[in-house]
Design a protein around this nucleic acid. Sequence first.
DNA 1: CCATTAAGATACT
DNA 2: AGTATCTTAATGG
Length: 221
Amino acid sequence: MNKVLNDQNYSETLGSTFKFLFEPNLIQEIDHCSQKRTFEAGKTIMDIGNDITHMPLIISGSIKVMTVDEDQNDLLLYYLEFGETCSVTLNCSSKKTTSTIKAVTEEETEVLFIPIDRMEKWMINYKSWRSFVLESYHTRMNEMVHAIDMLVFKSLEERLLKYLTDKSMVNNNPILMISHRIIAKEMNSSRVVISRLMKKLEQKNRLKQGRNMIEILDFTK
DNA sequence: CCATTAAGATACT
DNA sequence: AGTATCTTAATGG
């Protein structure tokens, strides 16, 4: 079970955490109705078909948002990081449907949960909330289009490189402790193929690798 | 030492 | 690109 943290300094931390995003009155409301929870790495905090009662706001850490096909293969859609929320949840909550995505913590992650029954009122009363929601839809839409583009038009080698750089970005570390087998599973490929491409990327000096270890050498190219 | 597992190699589809 | 199979190498008891 994930423990609920009852932090004494909770209002102050929260207020200072999100004051760059929301107006003071809204922060007060958030303080009032939201609940902070901390998850360790690898926890599923939302799954397909789950009822949506709260929307998440990331305080620290990162979350992978993905869909799942009939054979239970995951497809990574995007990562959520500090100050971000899941627009799929926003979408589901306004329509009062169940979740169409699965969300798993990439590392230890603190999340603020806000009951969805506030959404409608906040959309009307707070300009900063409306902007936040629209901005959120906007960035996710762009990311999804990019994800589809990568998936359909790019080679597996390019996708692998993006997968690795994205992962090292969210972890804030150019060194990844991960095996080829896990990468293959996450990209719906096979271990041999990933090993082959990894070898190629290593020869191109894009990364170094050892057992269960990959170091990304150049983020920008 | 040995069992387990990661990753390289080769060949076929 | 994916699968099957074999080999090599690292890791941890």
